[in-house]
Design a protein around this nucleic acid. Sequence first.
RNA 1: GCGGGCGUCGCCAAGUGGUUAAGGCAGCGGCUUGUGGCGCCGCUAUUCGGGGGUUCGAAUCCCCUCGCUCGCCCCA
Length: 423
Amino acid sequence: MSQLQSLRGMVDLLPEQIQRWQKVESIAREQFSFAGLEEIRTPLLEVTELFSRSIGEATDVVGKEMYTFLDRGERSCTLRPEGTASVVRAALQHGLLNHGHNRLWYSGPMFRYERPQAGRQRQFHQIGVEFLGLASPTIDAELISIGWDFLQSLGLKGLELQINSLGTIEDRKSYRNQLVQWLEVRFEDLDPDSKRRIQSNPLRILDSKNPSTKQLLKDAPTLNNVLSDESGERFLAVQQALLKLGIPFRVNPHLVRGLDYYDHTAFEIISDQLGAQATVCGGGRYDGLVEELGGPKTPAIGWAIGMERLLLLLSDLMPITSAPSVYLVNRGKNVEIHALVLARKLRAAKVGVEIDNSGAAFSKQFKRADRCGASWAIVLGEDEVARGEVRLKRLKSCKTENTKQEFTTSSSDLDGLLALINT
RNA sequence: GCGGGCGUCGCCAAGUGGUUAAGGCAGCGGCUUGUGGCGCCGCUAUUCGGGGGUUCGAAUCCCCUCGCUCGCCCCA
């Protein structure tokens, strides 16, 4: 291909799709505002250290998926692979936590250098919510409910909320040791991927898709049994809150989130219609992160929704319409400028107008007028301009009524014209 | 990073070694020199992602490369 193309995994959002995006964004904006959230926008580019410190050096995201480069000042910069770290950084930098701005949402592009596949791109978009400085189990339920309600209100079906508790960092450490011991005894029965992960990320093995490994893991020790009493009670409280809210969920003891900063509540909202990348919304508590990034000890929790995955689910549910009310048919010497003058007046009166700029034969223009779905055609030719008239013709209704509806008004009588159009 | 599938006009596609690369949609022109939705007629790829090779001859076979796509890893 000698033609210039977008980079692999970088996707254009074409006009056809963009309406759905705008719809989703406006619903999000509205609902989040009712939930008392404030929007925050942070830079796409951050110092690399922000992500390596928060997400974890050993994770795949940091280890092999970041877009990292040196800028002209020899600083290592990274295109953000996720939103949480930036939000926390911004909150600390501007002292937001001291001013009560602690329920935040964001949306925008994220970057991860991976092989694209269904529901995965190198530049993708997330819409996310973060609660900073809020600790109670009820907060976990509230945060989850905001995501759940948002997805429900879009009309999505076949979603399942799965939750788990990772306990405290200490709980996780002791569980990790226990699990590794248990797995090492059965090392020979594991699939190659899982063998490798015993070193790098043993908790991840719980999430394995390999059938025989899955079978084996049925008897593995679970996190729940290792949780401290306090962590266990906390997890129960979150579940009770969700029950009270009437949000259905399933406890999945194998649910492990990939980023290092998660503790306690972890959850995902999963679709049965997305293929391999089924998680639409993922999140969890990260009580240690703010401190890790140099702030005061601050409990926090958040989630992110993958916009592309959401739109994949939504495309069938959300038909798009974009027909103008008026299609302005025009032809003749010096007529086009009159058409533009008229269109501008109508547009100012909140009437959607599309001008035909082809100069083609009237029959052609009418064909297009009909095809674009406009309700009215306004006809402007040399005759009309000379007489100071505007001709108006109803398009769609004639199909059913089988009567031609045509009107002529003076071009100076804008109100009369508008009255007709709005009938 | 590793595997599978695919790449013919703006879109959907037939063609799988033999003179001019089907067809449909869209587009353009006309029937209708100023009036749509239907119909009819005509036009629209010296070229089959790109490069090399095999062959008298390739879109069709081989090699390389690029891209897309699905899956693994991982994640939204």
